[in-house]
Design a protein around this nucleic acid. Structure first.
Lengths: 351, 351
DNA sequence: CAGCGTGACTGAAGCGCTTCAGAAAGTCCA
DNA sequence: TGGACTTTCTGAAGCGCTTCAGTCACGCTG
């Protein structure tokens, strides 16, 4: 069975005996023809098995694709296992509907490969927490695609939404200080600075390639004595590497009495690791996360964390997308506010 | 600053003084011209700010978009909070690379709206666990798009990959029976059969609109006396509704001593609910999941569950995509094997 | 030297659609 | 009854690219 050539607008037009423009109008501008003729066209289309204008051809003619390219730093499984991303992207998707999301997962180099971006059929790009200088961003620029960045340094010509990272981190650190803690561990997500993860000097950590890592670190250090801090970086973004990092951090001597985690995911890994080591939280160890993603509230014990409204962040990102698409000028960078949510994973220092 | 018209192939061609075909070849068939001329073309392109052939125009000319449409039953956040999806999709994405994934999230009607599918720029569609008769599937057919379905009934002309649902469910049930359990609760994911969720008769449950729900139910009932079973359906796909359903199930009198959950997500919700009620697992309650998604192993206690290799499933789905895209005939439906992974969430019935 | 193979490049025909400036035919009102 | 609108539909010019059948020049072979 040779698959017959799909019918085109022309086929429908000649079947009905009208011009191609009329058939096009039947789909795109119903007010441009009598409803009677329109019915007739649609019937003929159905009879011929014509499923409506070809999306690609339409895109070429209108120079709009109806898709938003989402540039991710990591593989899909790593990306999706981050609840913060899920929530943000979901909110974004709702706002930009009916635009579809074209997912460009990251490769080894951090962010999607440049040529994937060059050939992506999308009207606009959204970059989610890419490392500084990711090649994908150059491609976006080269193509002249509008760009919205989330949790990233501002790029010229791009719109930006983030959160008050530094302030949030400072809130978390201050909370621990006020509880009497004096020995801190800082737990950062995996990055490509030190591909294997592991212990990090403050200097190295301050040079992280992710803006949020740098900012949150700075926020912590606004409140605690750098000398009282050890920094650990996870080896990757998987839960496994978070667990490994957590064990490493808890194995330091003297053991920190409080852990500042740069995401809830990391904090949850710490909780799990502490559980396995028989360390009681918060009696023997205080843990604070970042994001207030949904699992933070269900954790045992419920996680003290820095809250940012991820749904709002996603929504704002979506609105930025729509505004850039509408040709509006690039708005100034925006941030969602942060607040500290104190739950049960933090308590007084056990001297 | 009016955004200047982007340069096209023609601009580059006339800048260099060659034909348009030559410039096209410089990008697509380097062997068709001297490397010297190619260099010259590429330099001119860079000078003009030409970032390579326009993806849409290229698609129209080649009638290939390089995108795989992924049809989801739910919103993105619900979809992504399902680790099984993440793993599957990740594996799929790796196999079909460099194809990008075009995400079409589901709406209120189950699955993406029909017109979203009609206008999606993709070469092929992958449907992930859609309800029977989802309108999106009709659109796929109408467009004549190749289709791969995952965990769904077979559609004529579609390729299918699933898992041995019924067999897996039977394994789980048999395990509990052998542990002496005689009062069972079956916990099904939310669907649109009974939009609010809640208690379900066996008849209603057997008519579920999701194939995997029906099959797993049948598998459970292959091993346990239907009279010894109560069925609960979650109100939705969120963690919250899973928790609510879990409480409902644990509130039945007499309380089931063992719960058969149709996914790990549901099982984890049960674990959390049991914890809040002070019910010890497995001493007072046995819980078995389905999927063996990553969190199952980290749960407290680690979850006994039916394992299906999700990465393999995703990989096979990806291979099916590639084969259909290559014009190969539709292979017969395939299933990944299942096995029971006994961990610590199941134990002898407490009489 | 005729004949031929080869490498390098081009012309032009699409791909399937949208859109805009009309044309044709009807409607309305003074 | 005639001019001014409306409504309805059409012709044709793109949108930016790929690709195929050549054309052309050149060096090689026998």
């Amino acid at each position: 069975m040779t698959r017959r050539r799909r019918p085109t607008l022309d086929d429908v037009a000649s079947a009905v005996g009208v011009s191609r423009a009329t058939v096009s109008n039947a789909y795109n501008r119903p007010d441009q023809l009598s409803s009677q003729l329109r019915e007739q066209v649609l019937r003929a289309a159905a009879a011929l098995g014509y499923a409506g204008p070809d999306p690609t051809a339409r895109s070429l003619a209108t120079s709009r694709t109806g898709a938003v390219a989402v540039l991710l730093d990591t593989s899909l499984s790593a990306a999706f296992s981050d609840p913060a991303l899920s929530v943000t992207l979901d909110a974004l998707a709702r706002v930009v509907d009916p635009h579809a999301l074209l997912l460009l997962p990251g490769g080894a180099s951090g962010g999607p490969p440049a040529e994937r971006v060059l050939t992506a059929q999308a009207d606009i790009a959204v970059a989610y927490s890419l490392a500084d200088g990711a090649p994908a961003l150059d491609s976006v620029r080269a193509r002249g695609l509008p760009l919205v960045v989330i949790d990233q340094p501002l790029l010229p010509g791009a719109a930006r939404i983030g959160c008050a990272d530094r302030e949030g981190a400072a809130l978390a650190a201050r909370h621990l200080v006020s509880l009497g803690h004096r020995r801190f561990g800082i737990f950062a997500a995996g990055s490509r600075v030190t591909p294997g993860g592991g212990a990090l000097s403050l200097g190295a950590a301050s040079a992280a390639s992710f803006r949020d890592t740098r900012e949150r670190l700075a926020g912590y250090l606004d409140e605690v004595d750098p000398a009282s801090v050890v920094v650990e970086e996870a080896a990757g973004l998987s839960v496994e590497s978070a667990m490994a990092g957590a064990f490493a951090l808890l194995g330091r001597t003297p053991r920190p009495t409080a852990l500042l985690c740069m995401s809830d995911q990391l904090a949850l890994a710490v909780l799990a690791a502490a559980g396995q080591l028989g360390l009681r939280v918060p009696e023997e160890l205080s843990v604070v996360g970042f994001d207030d993603s949904p699992p933070a509230a269900w954790a045992v014990p419920p996680l003290t964390t820095v809250r940012q409204d991820l749904a709002v962040k996603g929504r704002i990102a979506g609105e930025l997308v729509l505004r850039l698409l509408a040709g509006e000028p690039v708005p100034p960078p925006d941030e969602v506010p942060v607040s500290l949510v104190v739950r049960a994973s933090t308590g007084p220092a056990s001297t």
